[in-house]
Simulated assay, not measured.
Amino acid sequence: MPNSTTTVLYIDDDAALGRLVQRILGRRHYVVEHVLDAAAGLARIGQGGIDVVILDHDLGTMSGLDVLAQLGGIENSPPVVYVTASSELSIAVQALKAGAIDYVVKTIGEDFEILLVSALEHSVERARLMRAKESAEREVRAARDRAIVLLAEVNHRVANSLSLVSSLVRMQASAVRDAGARAALAETQARITAIGNLHRSLYTSDDVRTVDLSAYLESLVGELGQSMSSAGRTPTIRFEATPILTKTDKAVSIGMIVTELVTNAIKYAYPDGEGEIRVSLSRDAEGATVLVVADDGIGWSGQGPISGTGLGGKIIGAMARSLATTIAYAQQPKGTRAVVKIASESVAGAVSD
């Protein structure tokens, strides 16, 4: 049995039929209001408080289809049961396409009452479910928006914290007299910066699942150049990139590889401190991401003894394995050219909504 507060608006220019419908539905505890024309019906709907509309097809100067067209522009308009004396299927199709939830043909006798009540109950239930669905979707969107804001705040705070740690390491390096220790601290600072820049990118990103790799690496390379220049090394770093989106965890690995390769080039490629280091990011014909770090310095082919502690090489190897790839050192007349080729599925993967 429907709730007694369910209010039905019946729009029909037949006063006698209007009274009949009021009696039929009144017995089933519906509250029925009857108006004789479209204008009065639209005005009453505009006042609010109508749960469902029973709309006749022939309203004299207007048709029920005209009313449906106007209801389509009203937000949260009530559901409509379309009623007509015609049995033509085309009218039913037009009414349903125009937004009516159900359709009833006027007949004489109990059939009309049964069909009308059934259509009305179906419309009320469907409207209830639609309102519940819309409410649930609004709650989900609101929860998602809150989660995005909170996650952005977390990334912002992490980036700030890592920036503070990086500053502390830099301060410590400036207080150390031993050149080796100072260089080790500078490398540690660069690694912290690589991770901090990623969180800064996530803070400004619309989708924290992915990172614009080109923008992230450009920022990273820029800070590496500034950091190493302050340590007394002055090679010029040039960066070229194609915009590429990648998953966040993959961006960390790529950023660490760039950090180590560029740091090594700054430290060892140019003993006199002057030269050029080139970093490029692109896609090849197969869709793979290709990262290249090259210089024109004294050269190293990936073979032979490694200067320093070897920690950088271990980090590069670990990050490359996480990307299911390796570092290739291309042969060239002078300098070093390190190439990292990463399959598209290893970089982007499937990011679903």
Rank of each mutant, 00 (worst) to 15 (best):
H57M: 11
I298R: 14
G313C: 05
V67A: 10
S135G: 09
P243C: 00
D212E: 10
A147V: 08
V347M: 15
R278T: 12
D51F: 02
R19P: 01
S87T: 14
G287W: 09
G349C: 04
A338Y: 02
I327L: 15
K133D: 09
A251I: 01
L120R: 03
I342H: 11
E110R: 14
G287L: 05
G312D: 03
L224T: 00
Y329V: 12
A269W: 00
I306M: 14
L150F: 05
A98T: 09
T246P: 06
S219R: 07
S205G: 11
A183V: 08
E276I: 07
E286I: 09
S135M: 09
E286F: 13
R19H: 09
S163T: 14
R23L: 07
T325S: 15
L164N: 11
V293R: 04
L115W: 07
A147H: 08
S344D: 14
G297F: 10
Q94P: 00
P271A: 09
I108V: 12
L9P: 02
G18S: 06
R170N: 10
V93T: 15
R233H: 09
W300F: 14
S344Y: 03
E286Y: 14
G46L: 04
V252D: 13
Q303T: 15
L291M: 11
A285R: 15
S352P: 00
S352V: 14
L116T: 04
T246A: 15
D296L: 02
S214A: 15
G299L: 06
A100F: 07
R44T: 12
A119L: 04
L217Q: 04
S344W: 05
D353L: 11
G18C: 03
N3W: 07
V258I: 10
D207E: 11
V117K: 01
A288F: 05
L151R: 13
A194Q: 01
V154T: 13
G273P: 03
E110Q: 14
